[in-house]
Design a binder for these strands. Structure first.
Length: 638
RNA sequence: GCCCCCGUAGCCUAGCCCGGUAGGGCGUCAGCCUUGUAAGCUGAAGACCGCGGGUUCGAAUCCCGCCGGGGGCUCCA
C-alpha cells in the first residue's frame, strides 16, 4: 500500500464521472466534500496488500497516527488514488481494503472521511507547505518504510570533496560520512575542538540549539534590544551598543580599509527595480526584499553591498595603471528573512556590513590582494574573538588544484586550521571564498569576515579597466567583508563571553570594546571627589571610566559593576585617599569564584588598561560618567 | 513560511486547569542609614492581565483571529 499524506489548510472535491465499472454506489453526501485543517491521505492499494490486509491496514493506521499526532490534526480524509503504484490490486479488493482502513481510522478516534472509489473527481488542495506537510509512506504487512517527500537536503549536496588544511600545511582529505576518524581532530589544541564543531555543523547540520545566551546579555548590558514598533529583526541600539558598533566600524575603517588602501564611498539605500543591474542582482531572492512603490515605480531597499558598488564602479573610469582599485563602504542592508528565522542577533532583517571591493587586473594581482585581505582579517578575528574562530572555505575544485600550494601557505600564515568544501562546477560568481567562523557557547558557527574571489561579475556587470592596448578588459573582483554584519559580530562577542562563563571565567568583552573600562566606587560620599579626580586622569589617558556616586552600599555597587562586566573595578575610601594606591579587581585574571586584586597607582592602572587596547580604536564614554546621572534603558529584575 | 510553547506594573513572576476584574519580589520615588569588594532599613506610587472579537449575568482565566517573543523545521545572494 502506498500513502501520500498532505497536511492541508483546505481540501475540496467533486465527483465528475464514473471511472471504473466496479465503482462503488454513490450516496448524495459522497458527491462532494469540503474540509478544513485536514490530513489528506491519498491511498493506493496494491496487489500484495490483499492477502495480509489486516496487517497492512494496521500498519497504515499506525503510520497515519504518527503523522497526525506530530501535526496535531484530528481530521483525516482517505482519498483513493490509483497513481502511486503500477501494481494495483483489483478494484473490488481495493475498495474493501479502503473501507477497512477508513473504519480502523475512525476507531482510533479520528474524524474520518472517505471520498468515493471508482469515480473521477476534481479536487482543490491547499497544502500548508511546512517540512512535514508532504510525506509519503510505503506500507507492507511487516514494515513501515519512512520516506519523507521533502527530504532534508544534506548541507553537503553541492560539494563532492572535503578536506582540512592544518596550520603546518598538512592536508587531510575527509570522508563526510566518517569525518570524525580523521587524525586532525585528535590533536590537543582547543582550536581543533572548534574545528570539529564547525565541520560537524557543515557536514551533518547544526545540532539542536540551546537558548542563545546573547539575548539576555544584549539586554542586560543595555547594548541592543528588540523594537516592536519596527518590523521584526530591526533592532534598537542603546548608547553602549552604539559605542561598540562605532568602535567596530572604526576598526574596519582605520585598521583595515584605509591601511589596505581603500577609498571610502557611500551609496544610497533605495534602488530602482527598473534598472537592469538591480534586477539581476535581486535575482531569485526577490521575495526577501523590502519593496515599495511610488508614483508607478518600484523600489527596493538595499539588500547587499553590490547594488551600490557595481553601478558605482561601472561608471568609474580607470586604467591598468590605477589597478588595483579599492573601495570601502559601510552598508546598511535589508532582507526580509522569514519571521521564524529571526532570533536575537543571530539573523536580522536589517544589519550593517563593512564591505570592501578590490578590482584587479589579473590573477597575480588578485591573489596578492586576496592574501593581504586574509591576513588583515586574521588580525581582526584575533582582536574580537581570540582563540574562538576557525576558517571555512568553499570553492571549485579546479581552482583549488591549480592553487593548492598557495592555499596551503596561506593557511600556515593564518595560523588557524581550515576546512575546505569543493564542488565540481562553479555554482556562484566566486571561484573560491573563505569565511571566518566564530564558535560560541551555543556551538553554532557565526560567519564574521569573508573574502571572495570573483571571476564572473567583472564581465557580467561590465566593470572594466582600460588596458595597455587601449581596450577594455573585465576586472577580477575581490569581495571582502571585514564584518559581514556588525550585529552578528556583537552576537559572536556575546556568545564567546557565554563560553567563558561556562568555563568558569567571568564573561566579558575585549577591553577595547568594553563600554566602560574602569568603574570607580567611592566608599562614602566624601570619597566621590577623589574618584572624580582619578577619573579625570584616566580619561586623559583615553580610558572610559564611570564613577558610582550613588548612595548605596559598597557591596551593592561592586555587584552592579560586576554584572555589567566592567573589566577593572576600584573601591576608593579613606585608605586610598591617603596612600594613593588603588586596589584594582582585574576581571580577565579573576575566576567566577575568586577575584584577582592588585594594588597599583593611577598611572599603572592607566597603563594596565592601555596594554590591552594597544593599537585599537578609542572612543569616549557615550553615557554620563556618574552612575547617578544614568537612566535605566532595560530594567532587569532579579 | 510552517509546527510547538509563551505574553500579568519598567523587569521577574503567583493566579488560568476548575470564570466572580489581581498577590509577591526587584527596580523607581520619598525618608532613614554614611556605608570597605556580588543585594542595608521603612514607606509610597505604579496593571485597559499583549491587541481585537466571541461565549457568559460576569473573562487574566474558556473559544477564535491578530501582534510580539522563544524553541524547532526549512532557508541563508
Amino acid at each position: 500500500m502506498k500513502l501520500l499524506l498532505i497536511h492541508a489548510d483546505g481540501f475540496e472535491y467533486r465527483v465528475t464521472g464514473r471511472a471504473v465499472d466496479m465503482a462503488e454506489p454513490l450516496t448524495d453526501d459522497m458527491r462532494e466534500g469540503v474540509f478544513e485543517e485536514v490530513l489528506v491521505v491519498f491511498t493506493t492499494v496494491e496487489k500484495g496488500d490483499v492477502e495480509a490486509k489486516e496487517a497492512v491496514v494496521g500498519n497504515a493506521v499506525a503510520s497515519v497516527k504518527e503523522v497526525a499526532s506530530k501535526l496535531s490534526v484530528g481530521r483525516v480524509l482517505v482519498y483513493p488514488y490509483a497513481h502511486l503504484s503500477s501494481d494495483l490490486a483489483n478494484p473490488g479488493d481495493a475498495l474493501r481494503v479502503l473501507q477497512m482502513f477508513e473504519d480502523a481510522l475512525r476507531r482510533e478516534g479520528f474524524e474520518t472521511h472517505r471520498s468515493p472509489f471508482g469515480w473521477y473527481k476534481s479536487f482543490k488542495l491547499s497544502c500548508k507547505g511546512h517540512p512535514l506537510a508532504e510525506l509519503s509512506r510505503s506500507i507492507t504487512a511487516e514494515t513501515v518504510e519512512v520516506e519523507e517527500a521533502e527530504k532534508p537536503t544534506p548541507k553537503t549536496r553541492e560539494f563532492h570533496r572535503f578536506l582540512v588544511i592544518d596550520i603546518d600545511g598538512k592536508v587531510y582529505e575527509l570522508d563526510p560520512s566518517d569525518w570524525r576518524s580523521c587524525p586532525v581532530f585528535g590533536k590537543k589544541d582547543p582550536v581543533y575542538r572548534l574545528l570539529a564543531i564547525f565541520v560537524r555543523n557543515e557536514v551533518e547540520g547544526n545540532p539542536p540549539k540551546k537558548t542563545p545566551k546573547h539575548i539576555e546579555y544584549m539586554r542586560r548590558l543595555e547594548l541592543v534590544d528588540y523594537c516592536p514598533e519596527s518590523d521584526v529583526g530591526n533592532m534598537k541600539f542603546y548608547p553602549n551598543g552604539v559605542l561598540i558598533a562605532d568602535l567596530v566600524k572604526d576598526y574596519a575603517m582605520f585598521k583595515v580599509a584605509l591601511p589596505w588602501g581603500a577609498m571610502k564611498v557611500q551609496n544610497p539605500l533605495i534602488y530602482r527595480e527598473s534598472v537592469k543591474e538591480i534586477r539581476e542582482l535581486m535575482g531569485e531572492f526577490h521575495e526577501r526584499d523590502y519593496r515599495m512603490s511610488y508614483g508607478g515605480e518600484n523600489f527596493v531597499l538595499r539588500f547587499a553591498s553590490d547594488p551600490g558598488a557595481f553601478p558605482f564602479m561601472q561608471k568609474t573610469l580607470f586604467s591598468y595603471r590605477h589597478l588595483p582599485v579599492k573601495i570601502y563602504e559601510e552598508v546598511q542592508c535589508f532582507r526580509r528573512e522569514k519571521s521564524g528565522e529571526v532570533v536575537g542577533l543571530r539573523r536580522l532583517r536589517s544589519f550593517t556590513m563593512t564591505d570592501q571591493h578590490c578590482f584587479c587586473r589579473d590573477e597575480e594581482q588578485a591573489k596578492e590582494e586576496f592574501e593581504r585581505l586574509c591576513l588583515l582579517f586574521r588580525d581582526l578575528m584575533n582582536m574580537i574573538a581570540p582563540g574562538s574562530w576557525v576558517l571555512g572555505w568553499e570553492g571549485v575544485e579546479w581552482f583549488y588544484e591549480e592553487n593548492k600550494d598557495w592555499l596551503r601557505n596561506l593557511t600556515v600564515k593564518m595560523g588557524v586550521p581550515a576546512f575546505f568544501k569543493l564542488s565540481r562546477e562553479m555554482s556562484h560568481y566566486f571561484a573560491i571564498k573563505n569565511e571566518y567562523q566564530v564558535i560560541g557557547a551555543d556551538e553554532a558557527n557565526v560567519q564574521i569576515s569573508t573574502v571572495q574571489y570573483d571571476i564572473k561579475n567583472g564581465e557580467r556587470f561590465k566593470i572594466m579597466y582600460v588596458g595597455e592596448d587601449g581596450k577594455k578588459h573585465p576586472c577580477i573582483i575581490l569581495h571582502a567583508s571585514s564584518f559581514g554584519s556588525i550585529e552578528r559580530t556583537l552576537y559572536a562577542l556575546l556568545e564567546v563571553a557565554a563560553r567563558m562563563e561556562e568555563e568558569g571565567r567571568p564573561p566579558m568583552l575585549p577591553v577595547w570594546l568594553s563600554p566602560e573600562q574602569v568603574r570607580l566606587i567611592p566608599v562614602a560620599e566624601r570619597h566621590v571627589a577623589k574618584c572624580m579626580e582619578i577619573a579625570d586622569f584616566l580619561e586623559k589617558s583615553r580610558v572610559r571610566v564611570g564613577v558610582d556616586d550613588r548612595e548605596l552600599s559598597v557591596a551593592r555597587k561592586v555587584r552592579d559593576a560586576k554584572t555589567r562586566w566592567v573589566p577593572f573595578i576600584v573601591v576608593v575610601g579613606d585608605r586610598e585617599v591617603e596612600t594613593n594606591r588603588l586596589p584594582v579587581v582585574i576581571r580577565d585574571k579573576s575566576t567566577l569564584k575568586e577575584d584577582y586584586m592588585k594594588e597599583m597607582t593611577v598611572e599603572e592602572l592607566a597603563e594596565e588598561v592601555r596594554s590591552r587596547c594597544r593599537g585599537m580604536p578609542f572612543r569616549p564614554l557615550y553615557v554620563p560618567r556618574e552612575l547617578s546621572r544614568r537612566v535605566t534603558f532595560v530594567a532587569w529584575g532579579r
